[in-house]
Amino acid sequence: MQSWQKVQCGVLLSISIAVMAGCSASSPYRDRAEDYRHAEPSHYELPPIPGQRDQMPIPQGSTQGYTGDEFIAPRPESMQTGVAERPPVELRKDNQGPWLWVNTGPAKVWPALQRFAEEKNLDVVYTNPRSGELMVRADVGGTPAQRFSLRQGVGRQTSEVRIVSMSSGQALPFSEFDRERMMALEQYLLVTQQQQNGRVSLAAQNLDDGDQVRWVDRDGRRLLVLDFAFDRSWGELQNLLSNGFDEDAQRLDDQDRSQGIFYIHYLARAERDSGFWSWLFGSDNADKAKAYRLVLTPSGDMTELHVEDASGQPADIQVEQELLDWIRRQLT
């Protein structure tokens, strides 16, 4: 019985193999597994792609200021840029009177200004976030009306806040009442900045003008253009130099507002003594620093800034670019 079953299994297996072989032989699909052995090389030319261009072009480098002589790369600037970390809020003063500098953009300062008026129970009669104006009515106690003005500072993401008392539509001289109100606002904004609650006014974003300090090439020289009138530009640069130019290699000596000139001493970074030995025994950077002038010139609603040597001639290109680039980075 078992032998008969083995015979049956063998017969079925033989039939299956024969059927599979027959199907393979009669298949309409040819086996191409070995075609690559007999293939011959061929060359195809791709058609040109219309409008093809480099997706990541490399711009041409500027050769301005290069004389063709051997160039010595300046030493990298230290992490300390010469200006201490700016405070959140700072009281400043110019020819128009005291005002507040805030280290954040108008879109965040405007909601804080509105909350200040609400918490102080000020009788607000007019607000315009697009122009940055908030008017407070005079009260029965005899205190005058006040106008709060908000605008972008010289640097990006900074703001300026001014308070002016008004009478019959005319601005009054800065008074003790204005000073007390401004001091209260300064403390309020300081607390608000530290809390960082993140409230932003979409309407007040119109006051953010972006970069307002830019490079301009003129007659082979470089200068900075500040999108502010002379008075405002002078005050900002005066504050910057008073706090940032207090080293041996760069210092503010004098200033003449009527002529728009800051008198400074400056030593190019590549010529400065640095390292352990200069720290241990001192350096002669102060003796090697040369006299220069930073000259502000009104140009309509803008102000131009350029660098001269002590005789009034254009400064060395390396010094010119270092000074103006340092100022630009501090103001932006």
Results as ranks from 00 to 15, higher is better:
247 E>N: 10
247 E>A: 12
25 A>V: 09
306 H>M: 07
40 E>D: 12
233 S>C: 08
192 T>Q: 15
97 G>T: 10
269 R>W: 02
280 L>R: 12
263 Y>C: 01
187 Q>D: 10
291 A>Q: 12
18 A>G: 15
54 D>E: 13
278 S>G: 14
250 Q>K: 14
11 V>W: 13
38 H>Q: 12
267 L>Q: 07
100 L>Q: 02
135 M>K: 07
59 P>N: 12
309 D>A: 05
112 A>D: 10
192 T>I: 01
40 E>V: 11
45 E>K: 14
91 L>R: 15
151 R>E: 10
18 A>Y: 06
105 G>T: 03
115 R>V: 01
23 C>R: 12
84 A>T: 12
249 A>D: 11
52 Q>W: 12
84 A>L: 13
211 D>P: 08
163 I>C: 01
184 A>I: 00
213 V>H: 01
61 G>N: 11
4 W>Y: 05
8 Q>W: 07
317 I>V: 13
332 T>K: 14
88 P>T: 04
318 Q>D: 13
125 V>K: 08
196 Q>M: 07
87 P>K: 08
206 N>V: 11
314 P>G: 10
329 R>K: 12
38 H>V: 06
109 V>E: 03
288 K>S: 11
247 E>C: 01
327 I>C: 10
30 R>N: 10
117 A>K: 04
232 R>N: 04
275 G>L: 08
223 L>Y: 08
210 G>M: 08
327 I>A: 10
71 F>R: 12
212 Q>R: 15
266 Y>N: 05
197 N>K: 15
56 M>V: 11
80 Q>C: 09
230 F>L: 15
168 S>Q: 15
176 E>D: 10
187 Q>H: 08
193 Q>A: 15
163 I>E: 00
50 P>I: 03
267 L>C: 03
108 K>I: 00
25 A>F: 06
175 S>M: 04
328 R>I: 03
104 T>C: 08
122 L>T: 05
31 D>F: 04
120 K>G: 00
216 V>D: 13
151 R>Y: 04
266 Y>P: 01
222 R>K: 15
217 D>T: 11
28 P>M: 04
27 S>N: 11
23 C>Y: 10
11 V>D: 02
305 L>V: 15
57 P>E: 09
311 S>C: 02
259 Q>A: 14
225 V>W: 00
301 D>A: 15
56 M>H: 13
142 G>I: 05
326 W>S: 09
319 V>K: 07
201 S>Y: 05
301 D>N: 15
113 L>C: 07
322 E>F: 03
308 E>V: 02
282 G>T: 07
330 Q>C: 08
109 V>G: 02
232 R>P: 00
35 D>M: 08
295 V>G: 06
227 D>Y: 01
113 L>W: 03
127 T>K: 07
308 E>W: 04
252 L>Y: 02
124 V>G: 03
107 A>T: 01
189 L>P: 04
141 G>S: 11
72 I>G: 01
69 D>M: 08
65 G>C: 11
141 G>H: 03
201 S>Q: 09
217 D>L: 09
234 W>H: 12
257 R>D: 03
63 T>R: 14
226 L>I: 11
22 G>K: 03
264 I>D: 09
76 P>E: 11
316 D>F: 01
139 D>N: 14
189 L>Q: 02
265 H>T: 10
203 A>Q: 15
259 Q>W: 00
318 Q>H: 15
136 V>Q: 01
258 S>L: 03
209 D>S: 13
106 P>S: 08
300 G>N: 09
86 R>G: 01
52 Q>V: 13
48 P>L: 11
314 P>D: 12
